[in-house]
């Protein structure tokens, strides 16, 4: 591997990491709201979040990416006659990934909260806590710890799925490797795999540690 190729890999890795972390952070924030909507007593909010999770989890992410990048600007143009300016591949990619991971993560958050025994709600309220207090002081801390393993899992999944973004013109790790391997140098595939393994292993190890630390307070 020459210096130019090495730099291309550094750049590709940075793009993969940016796509992953921006999407996962945005996705987590969105997931929180979706989970709250899903558990709310308001039927409309509940239905919206249900449809959202149903559509996103029931269709391939690859298709969602194609729609976000190719279909949205054309629909916009047909409806308004205007070009949707600055519809970037990075933005559409992050959008699709965030919306996707939010659907999965919202279910993780919901099941995390619902897995806490009902008795704890009742006990907290018996002690005179308001609903919000019970949530913040009793339920949320316990939920967070339970969220760590599935969240770590979702993070590594998204990290690998960023490779799908290459189809809309983003040169991340896999596309960098595809380019170098195109003339037969298949070693780049394996090098690419090794870079992913390092990243996913570090993520897993990190969250294992976090889980252990969080576990001390249970």
């Amino acid at each position: 591997m020459n210096q130019q190729q090495f730099m291309a890999y550094v750049e590709g890795t940075m793009i993969t990491l940016q796509l992953t972390f921006i999407s996962v952070i945005l996705g987590f924030i969105l997931a929180f709201f979706v989970a709250v909507m899903r558990m709310s007593k308001n039927k409309i909010l509940k239905s919206i979040s249900w449809v959202y999770v149903w559509v996103i989890r029931g269709t391939p992410m690859f298709l969602q990416i194609l729609i976000a990048y190719f279909a949205v600007p054309i629909i916009y143009r047909n409806m308004t006659g205007q070009v949707l300016s600055n519809w970037s591949a990075f933005g559409a990619g992050v959008g699709a990934l965030s919306l996707n991971t939010a659907a999965y993560t919202s279910e993780v958050i919901r099941s995390g909260i619902e897995s806490i025994d009902k008795g704890q709600w009742e006990a907290a309220q018996a002690l005179g806590m308001t609903k919000a207090q019970a949530m913040l002081k009793v339920i949320a801390p316990q939920t967070l710890k339970r969220l760590i393993p599935p969240f770590s899992n979702e993070l590594t999944t998204i990290m690998k799925d960023t490779s799908l973004i290459s189809t809309i013109g983003i040169t991340e790790l896999v596309k960098t490797s595809k380019g170098f391997a195109a003339s037969g140098a298949i070693r780049f595939y394996f090098f690419c795999g090794a870079v992913y393994l390092v990243m996913t292993t570090l993520t897993t190890v990190f969250f294992d540690k976090v889980e252990k630390i969080a576990g001390k307070y249970e």
Binding site: F70, P73, I74, R77, S88, A89, T167, I168, G169, T171
Partner: peptide, 18 residues
């Protein structure tokens, strides 16, 4: 420079204004 997997996608992007 934006490179797509197929030339059809490049034309779609031209149509969408990307």
């Amino acid at each position: 420079l934006i490179s797509y997997d197929s030339v059809q996608q490049a034309f779609l992007a031209l149509e969408g204004g990307q």
